[in-house]
Amino acid sequence: MTLITAVLGDITQQHVDALVNAASREMRGGSGVDGAIHRVGGASILTQCISRFPHGLATGDAGWTTAGDLPAKWVIHTVGPNRHAGETDRSLLASCYRRSLEVADELGAATVAFAIIGAGAYGWDLDTAVTTAVQTLAASPTQVREVTLVTPHDDALRTIEAQLLRA
């Protein structure tokens, strides 16, 4: 069984096997979590994104690169659905978590840190984003021993902790 916990903090500072990046479809860096991971991790992450994913990734899919200068081994990049662009299918949001765990299993990652995918610039309301994250992570078969949900916001931490109590 996978232990799921929540922490208030910076995802780029998590000492885990893999960090999950809420990436853009193009896989070329961006703002928010994506921009922070690329800034802190360094140019090697972008170089690998370009070579490994020349056409980017589909919404709901995931792929990996090494972690560059981050305190992790790998970055798992996943593309969340953008509600502002009309991508309102919650199953695509759930797919981000399932596919990320599948990639983590392929890599042999035992510890994985996730941001709450879709709850920022992509417009998903926090309750839906957190509920989808916790329910999907709890129900998905995986060899990952520990998942940490990381947020820099107190209100999001309280929402995650409340959902974890219900799970």
Rank of each mutant, 00 (worst) to 15 (best):
D89N: 15
R98A: 14
R98N: 09
T78R: 00
R98Y: 07
I76T: 11
P81G: 05
A72S: 14
S95P: 05
A94S: 15
T78D: 01
W74N: 08
S91Y: 10
Y97S: 10
R98W: 05
E87A: 12
L92P: 09
R90I: 15
D89Y: 06
K73L: 13
S100G: 14
K73G: 14
P81T: 03
H84W: 15
S95F: 05
E87W: 00
T78K: 00
V75F: 12
L92H: 14
P81E: 04
A85E: 13
Y97W: 10
C96H: 06
S95E: 08
C96R: 00
N82G: 06
R99S: 14
A85I: 01
G80W: 00
P81C: 07
A85S: 15
R99Y: 06
A94W: 04
S91I: 02
R99D: 08
R98M: 01
R83D: 02
L93Q: 05
G80V: 00
L101C: 13
V79A: 01
C96D: 07
L101R: 10
L93H: 06
R99M: 13
E87T: 03
C96W: 02
G80D: 04
V79Q: 03
G86F: 03
H77R: 08
H77D: 07
A85W: 08
T88I: 12
H77F: 02
I76M: 05
G80S: 10
G86K: 02
S91C: 07
P81N: 07
H77W: 04
I76V: 14
N82T: 03
T78W: 05
P81W: 01
E87S: 08
T78C: 04
T88K: 11
S95M: 09
R90H: 13
S95Y: 04
N82K: 03
R90S: 10
S95N: 12
A85F: 04
C96F: 03
V75R: 11
G80T: 05
L101E: 10
H84Y: 15
K73C: 11
W74D: 03
P81I: 02
T78N: 05
A72N: 04
E87P: 03
I76S: 10
R83K: 14
G80E: 04
P81D: 05
A94L: 00
V79K: 02
V75P: 09
S95W: 05
L101K: 10
T88F: 00
R98V: 11
G86M: 03
K73P: 04
R98F: 04
R99E: 15
P81Q: 05
G80C: 08
A94F: 00
D89L: 03
